[in-house]
Design a binder for these strands. Structure first.
Lengths: 209, 209
DNA sequence: ATAGTGAACTGGTCAGACCACTTTTTGTGG
DNA sequence: CCACAAAAAGTGGTCTGACCAGTTCACTAT
């Protein structure tokens, strides 16, 4: 009859906190019930309540002021709560999000390359272009990796590697003939510093995959 | 003076935890010291240590198993973000990369919003615009967070939250008068769907910070 | 060598106690 | 009556200690 008590207390409290916020129409900036009151209402110890509150505070969803009280974060509480619940429930993000994020990093790398002369003039681009022209073994991942590496943001590179590892399943290795053109346009545009054209070529290329 | 922020204990512990992970080369999937051991080493009470650990657990960075121990989140499928964050945590040197990456996600969010009518027409933008106009308390983070949320990529949001959490130090809270204009242009451009203008306004705004 | 058992360890939860800070109330003096 | 300072109440921040409930692992007894 009762819900599963299996989950950890502080997660249940986070969930109940969200329900409480919605029920009582607590607006961003408003004060939340005090920790001690929440203990009573949620039938939990103060330690557990605090674990939940501190978690939400680290996420930036609430703000606690010593001696003052606990408040719902200033802006956009309702939207945040929705996001939050999805985190709690561990609803896993779609493959789409992973792809979109990876492509975001790739596009940004292309933009950076286009904007910097030293990067545009790297010999690697000619090399890649020639390999594509000759239909040699050119792996998509290699091309994109070169871009992200060239862009010089190591954090972005690390993120990209992880994202790529995760989304590799649906990617074929070799570059097909139909992709050849868009790919070469991409590289040439990059070398010329034509950001818009490069991005457009990239989008067209990605669209084929 | 020393940068002893005298901030909240559980935040200090979060910070110390990441230092500990870095020093001991703890890899994703590895076991962390037990809560009681951490109490001794970090010279804090178990309550505070647990508040920190539970926060990291809600973020998905660590995983606790009843009776088993606490582990640094492993590469299991979608949990990739956790690994990144552990990278982020240990790279003090590349603060610039963190900022650049965070800004990348913000720009992408702006682009997405500009491109989709439903997102442009969200009431939140008028609300933010009005608050800026009235010089109310508007936090930079709140504005950017709304953008990333609205863009709808939850993976990107999760990455952003973590990037923001660890680059917070250099960000002031309030929006200054000099930023007001660029910010309002950003919002208006977004609502109109003028991608280029919005990005330009964003860059100008960011440049001031 | 194996299966079984139990001690030792680990996280999960709770209760209560202080402290420091903020807000509210109260009581005084004008 | 009002203004203002002192006192009280309220609130988050931290710590201690305790007990429960799972997991691990070494050491039996077979």
């Amino acid at each position: 009859m009762e819900q599963k008590p299996a989950k950890k207390m502080f997660l249940q409290i986070v969930k109940q906190l969200r329900e409480l916020i919605m029920e009582q129409r607590i607006q961003p900036g408003d004060k939340l019930p005090s920790e001690r009151v929440l203990c009573e209402r949620l039938n939990a110890s103060r330690s557990s309540v605090r674990e939940a509150l501190r978690s939400l505070e680290l996420l930036g969803l609430i703000e606690s002021r010593h001696g003052g009280g606990t408040f719902l974060a200033d802006v956009g509480g309702h939207q945040l709560v929705e996001i939050l619940s999805s985190f709690i429930l561990r609803e896993e993000k779609s493959q789409k999000d992973v792809h979109a994020t990876r492509e975001m990093h790739e596009r940004e790398a292309i933009r950076i390359i286009c904007a910097e002369k030293e990067l545009r003039n790297l010999p690697i681009w000619d090399s890649l272009f020639a390999q594509i022209e000759l239909q040699q073994e050119v792996k998509r991942a290699a091309i994109l990796r070169e871009c992200v590496i060239a862009a010089g943001n190591r954090l972005s590179l690390k993120i990209w590697i992880q994202l790529h590892a995760y989304s590799m399943t649906s990617l074929k290795d070799r570059v097909t003939v139909s992709e050849k053109e868009a790919l070469q346009i991409l590289i040439k545009s990059m070398q010329m510093g034509y950001t818009e054209e490069a991005i457009e070529a990239y989008n067209e290329w990605i669209g084929q995959i």
